[in-house]
Design a protein around this nucleic acid. Structure first.
Lengths: 399, 399
DNA sequence: GGCATTTACGAAGGAGCCCATCATTAGTAG
DNA sequence: CTACTAATGATGGGCTCCTTCGTAAATGCC
């Protein structure tokens, strides 16, 4: 069925495999001793030492001072050099541009936010992106030559080439070759993805969906969207439009949030971005008309969710987006409606990552992409490792 | 994101990898010479020879007579011993039980069909399954000890433990522990899966969906169902109910076919199993009322398909099931309706495997499952190979 | 039939990677 | 200062792979 294709090969391939296994053990963990490392990789101690020597030489790993106070001879300790490279995640929304810079372990080092509005012209928006990332870099004392990858998450449909195929939330955004424009700005790998998909990824990598095989992420906010993790992988779909239920008029997802912020309960004078919050709050306080609006909104949300849940049968559904702060009143009816149509309804959880979700997902996506080149078994033998390592050691600028 | 986990290890692991690579090259192909084998596996000739010696010793591969008439010294030729083991696929429908026996390459060696009806009691139905498989075995001159795996495909929802969670088409079928009952009958691996899922798998493995990454298979027949291939793998879902759109009343899939065989066009006296065919045929001849019925049916089919297509965004949709014989009149309106809601509509193709679809999928599923144990990188080092090989060599009966 | 050509086989030598073992070293505890 | 502990570093051996070379078994031409 799938093609695992370890494909065998050379002796050096074995070493490569073992090096990668070591990196994988080391990454994201505190510094480890050779003994522990040997145990976790399954290698013998001498071999582990060989591997570490090599990785230290390549710059992937560094030795740290041994810890004192233990019995016996102090053990060497090694750590993954997460600071060997950096990635950026950008969330391009209708009203804001949020950028975050992280090291190769995904630790956030800097974050900046710029305000825009839906009518901001494309060039100005791209400029805001540039400024946001530049801000992160200067906060962290880095230059754009230190970047290994940039992931942009944006509202709207993103095609496989990284162009915005369709965006209703941002004016004139449809058709922008975002990957192309960003590539001109940054001399590194540029990835573009739909924001809900990145949010799903973030929840899966470091949020409430960790460890789940299949996950549906619902973005409930001024837009309604979804992202899917299938079999432990972000599912994009052939045209990158997986989860774009809103294209089906029957789903009423396209203007689903209007049921909230267009509710008759909203008094005049409330700014549109606060309307939904007002209704949700009123519903919580027992206002019957507000409850009615919420009910209708959840019905729409649940219908689309049900379509996707029945299609994919995930074990977990995550409610995210700005409305998820009102999960206490959204979750019960949503759960009820899903239970009506599912043989075994998926567990329902609320996103905890807040509005950093998308940038976190972008960072994770970028790192995963780099990993793919590292851990990739694709070519069989050719070692992707020296590419990075070379760049890291010689110029300091990768790729 | 995913966890490829080759996890490195021993030298023997490398040999194992290379052995598996060799098997993979050999399997399903005509006998190959060492030179070709060496080229395709990427190994040197001497190493390839070593690997082949080992595999011949284990019984996975055998040498065949060299081919004459070529220049130079005749080269040894090796072939995968597909006859080293056998698997069975069974299609358990409401009206029939169809079984097929195949070798490890998936070549069909025998096939038998038994007629049942929806009211056949469970024990009698299981007996029909037993007889169908026994028939295949005796046709091929084998015993059930020669079977390595049996896959049963059945209408209805199949839970992860191989029980029938829900079946509307077969009386008293819900709740039957099919995997358990079959395990009592056959001393080998028993797998149970929904029939539409297996059909999807078959189309992907050897039908019109080969090579596609994501595929939606539509079963259009007396029941309406679906199967999904996601990222080159059969997607089951957490409870095994992926694609069970019919649980959503709005989809109207549960009684979708009634729009055809319950059409007012059908004259009295036509047996129910021929009614749909009559309507489709009448529609082809231009009968306006029949065309109207077909139109309504396609509308329902398309709605469910659209839900799943928008969720998964597959590159390919396959129309299968008995109604697919009338693809000429079903496909155009289906295509039109999908095009209305998709940014980039998936390609639409008609199944070519006919009613053997499910057994073929079952056979493929069984072989894949065995492969998983063979090629599986799961444990890291422990070699699954000797298990089979031992059994093969000593008793002739595996597992 | 004999000889050149072609193609594959098999053996030998060498390199890389991993492992087990053991003496040695650098700490802590008393 | 000595005993104990735990990790280090070096040695030797085994396995798998590779390259190279002489040999073997066919065909095709004379």
């Amino acid at each position: 069925m799938s093609n695992p294709a370890p494909s065998g090969g050379d002796l050096s391939r074995l070493r490569q495999l073992n090096s990668l296994a070591a990196i994988r053990v080391l990454r994201g963990a505190e510094p480890l001793t050779l003994s522990v490392l040997a145990e976790r990789t399954g290698l013998s101690r001498p071999s582990t030492k060989d591997v570490m020597d090599e990785l230290v030489g390549l710059g992937w790993v560094e030795e740290v001072a041994p810890v004192a106070g233990t019995m016996g001879r102090p053990a060497r300790r090694y750590r993954f050099r997460a600071d060997g490279g950096h990635v950026v995640g950008v969330d391009i929304g209708a009203h804001k541009v949020l950028a975050a810079l992280a090291d190769l372990d995904g630790n956030i080092l800097a974050e900046t936010r710029h305000t825009v509005d839906p009518d901001t012209p494309t060039d100005a928006r791209l400029d805001a992106i540039d400024k946001a990332i530049a801000g992160c870099l200067s906060l962290a004392g880095l230059t754009r030559r230190d970047l290994w990858a940039v992931t942009a998450g944006t509202t709207g449909l993103v095609d496989p080439e990284g162009r915005v195929a369709l965006s209703t939330a941002i004016r004139n955004w449809s058709g922008v070759d975002l990957a192309g424009r960003l590539s001109e700005m940054f001399p590194c790998t540029v990835l573009v993805e739909n924001d809900s998909k990145l949010a799903a990824l973030a929840e899966w990598q470091r949020g409430v969906a960790q460890g789940a095989k299949d996950v549906l992420f619902l973005h409930a906010g001024r837009r309604t969207g979804a992202g899917l993790i299938v079999d432990g992988k972000l599912h994009r779909g052939f045209a990158g439009s997986a989860g774009e239920i809103s294209l089906l008029p029957l789903s009423r997802w396209a203007d689903g949030s209007a049921l909230l912020d267009g509710s008759p309960v909203v008094p005049t004078g409330i700014p549109p971005q606060d309307a939904a919050r007002y209704v949700l709050s009123a519903a919580r306080d027992g206002d019957p008309a507000a409850m009615e609006s919420v009910e209708r909104y959840v019905e729409v949300l649940a219908l689309g969710a049900a379509m996707m849940v029945l299609t994919v049968d995930p074990e977990l559904v995550i409610l995210g987006g700005s409305f998820s702060r009102a999960a206490d009143i959204l979750l019960p009816p949503l759960r009820r409606r899903l239970a009506e149509v599912c043989m075994r309804p998926p567990e329902l959880r609320v996103s905890t990552l807040g509005d950093e979700c998308v940038v976190l997902g972008g960072i994770g996506y970028a790192i995963h992409h780099l990993d793919g080149r590292l851990f990739g078994v694709e070519g069989g033998l050719p070692t992707p490792l020296p590419q990075h390592a070379d760049a890291m050691l010689t110029s300091g600028a990768p790729l």
